[in-house]
């Protein structure tokens, strides 16, 4: 990410260190993750320690420190989804993609993550692919959906 872009983000938040998480979110919206260079630059500009930023970035679930796949798959692991079979759905995705949650498929096309409750409990099990909610998902449904996305890529 170019430093000019980061400067713009910093300016938008008046270089206020309290807004550091909002700045992280904006960087991640653009890059898909938080590059080390961006964090170092932010630390420099805001007079914060890199270790402090690293701590924040690893504490919160939403931040990625590694590049993500072209398609982001989030599997909801909330209680309602769990009792309606979310573990089987996750198993199926892991098997088909050949990765475990938190990883990116070897061709870089899919990133798989689990989320602790998306607040769409009536639709469980819920899977969100690139921001699109897929309710009442099942292993069989996942297989079909993955095929669809693979075709698009």
């Amino acid at each position: 990410m170019e430093t000019r872009e980061i400067d713009k983000i910093i300016a938008r938040y008046n270089a206020d260190p309290q807004e550091i998480m909002a700045m992280f979110m904006e960087i991640q919206d653009k890059e898909g993750y938080l590059p080390k260079s961006a964090l170092s630059y932010l630390a420099d500009k805001l007079h914060l320690r890199l270790a402090q930023l690293y701590r924040l970035a690893t504490f919160y679930e939403a931040f990625n420190l590694k590049p993500q796949g072209d398609h982001q798959i989030h599997v909801c692991m909330g209680t309602a989804c769990h009792v309606r079979g979310a573990p089987q759905v996750l198993d199926k995705l892991q098997q088909t993609l050949g990765i475990t949650a938190g990883e990116v498929s070897s061709d870089g096309s899919f990133g798989l993550k689990t989320v602790n409750c998306l607040g769409a409990c009536a639709l469980g099990p819920v899977v969100v692919i690139d921001g699109e909610y897929c309710g009442h998902s099942s292993p069989l449904k996942m297989e079909k959906i993955l095929k669809k996305y693979k075709k698009h890529t």
């Binding site: 206020d16 260190p17 309290q18 979110m25 924040l56 919160y60 679930e61 939403a62 602790n116």
Partner: peptide, 26 residues
């Protein structure tokens, strides 16, 4: 408006306030 970045424990009142201060929500 401030956005939380996904940490269940940050819903605890003192943790949420830390988070608002731009610190780790502990």
């Amino acid at each position: 408006i401030r956005r939380g970045a996904g940490a269940f424990v940050s819903g605890e009142s003192s943790a949420l306030m830390s988070s608002l201060e731009g610190k780790v929500g502990e």
